[in-house]
Design a protein around this nucleic acid. Structure first.
Lengths: 232, 232
DNA sequence: TCTAAGGTTTGATAAATATCAAGCAGCAAT
DNA sequence: ATTGCTGCTTGATATTTATCAAACCTTAGA
């Protein structure tokens, strides 16, 4: 399968301004692959051979140390990962696994670096993307260090509700134990944190979240674009 | 005062490959300024008017939310900050204050962006720098989420000892309360964590750290380049 | 339909971390 | 030397978070 079969790729901000010839270079070396669920795609510490783009499905980024591990992020359709490692030709800092059946595009890191060297449109797009990623991780650090687990959960739900178009009811799109790990708590404590939000008008039944009193929740969550707005 | 008076600037990785003419553009708009201690240089949320470079002194990056605040990083001589905000023309995510008498170079963000647009050497250097910064913050997140406070302290000390050339005794270069905040704990708990490291051969007297049994400390800290090596 | 497996929830308990209050030590200005 | 300021440390206590064990759901497959 060819990259040209996937028009979405070329319309990604990362590739939109790449010259046609250089896009061909990237496309020639690219693989499109389907993976079953729960496959470990990359392992932290390994050399970064490919830039990954998720076409379909869900990929979990996670990291481990001394027998513990933690969910760092989940990447969904048309998200990319391992850009920084690819650019620096450095080892992966995180591992990645599919959570469901997923389709990915793999761009050989060497091709990415060589096009990056000669294509200024690509270089500029990479700068924009990296700056955005950097800011996201900074926001995440602020979230972790400045908020309690209940406040993190409250803000997560507020943000998800915005993502659901403001609907008072929506579905969580990841398992609770992964959400717990992402938010820096145990699954048990996520359960308790959900209970603790009941007085603020939050009900959770399975994966379905219902927010009956957004005002109370907001009052607790105190979201700020400087932590909670991914686009900011 | 002119940028040309500060030859160190031009030899920074960020500016080394900038064309001479473009370097002139950056230099013409640049300010060099001296600040007394405890001056707030920038405030989170404000538009990013300048890229900052520390020539002399120490600057603390910190962030606040809901009456709490936390130290995000300290920047010393020839470090830069606010690159990502400058590039994206987005508001600062962190505030900065001088900790001691400091001298900074301020490059107007507009100049930085305009040279970035036309100078591919500069663009490439920015990509390298941003990728490095991104990876640093990811490592910091892993440190926070995967380790207890004592483990974070142990690894901090191991890393500082390496920075001191492996000497068995060295000085902390930031106040303990800021170190505590940086490591994600209270000053009180830093005191207790230091005590908890005594059985591992660590003694702290004022700012002076002495490591009598590096092997025991390493055994506890279990450092890995994927978290602890800034260059990795 | 039944079963097994894995995720989730609950309760009891333990560990980690924060808070509060007091005392101590270093240091700069007088 | 004395004063006052600030940061550091210590002890007591409270809060937050994690761990462990068990029960409960849900769901995929036999």
């Amino acid at each position: 399968m060819k990259l040209s079969d996937i028009p979405e790729i070329q319309s990604l901000p990362l590739f939109r301004d790449v010259e046609d010839g250089n896009l061909d270079v990237l496309m020639r070396g690219a693989y499109v692959q389907n993976f079953p669920p729960r496959i470990e795609l990359i392992t932290e510490g390994e050399p970064s051979d490919f830039l990954h783009i998720v076409i379909e499905g869900t990929v979990e980024m996670f990291a481990s140390w001394n027998g513990r591990d933690t969910t760092m992020a989940t990447v969904k359709s048309l998200g990319t990962f391992i850009l920084a490692a690819t650019i620096r030709d450095a080892p992966y800092l995180m591992s990645a696994r599919t959570l469901e059946k997923s389709r990915l595009v793999l761009l050989p890191s060497e091709d990415v670096r060589s096009v990056f060297q000669k294509d200024s449109g690509f270089a500029h797009a990479i700068v924009a993307e990296l700056a955005q990623c950097y800011r996201s991780v900074i926001k995440n650090t602020k979230n972790l260090k400045l908020r309690t687990s209940i406040e993190r959960l409250a803000n997560y739900l507020v943000r998800k509700q915005i993502g659901a178009g403001g609907a008072s009811s929506f579905e969580l799109d990841i398992e609770k134990r992964r959400l717990a790990s992402y938010l820096g708590m145990t699954p048990e404590n996520l359960s308790r944190a959900i209970k603790a939000l009941q007085p603020y008008g939050v009900t959770v039944d399975g994966a379905r979240v219902t927010i009956t009193n957004p005002k109370d929740l907001l009052d607790l969550a105190k979201p700020t674009p400087l932590i909670d707005d991914p686009a900011h």
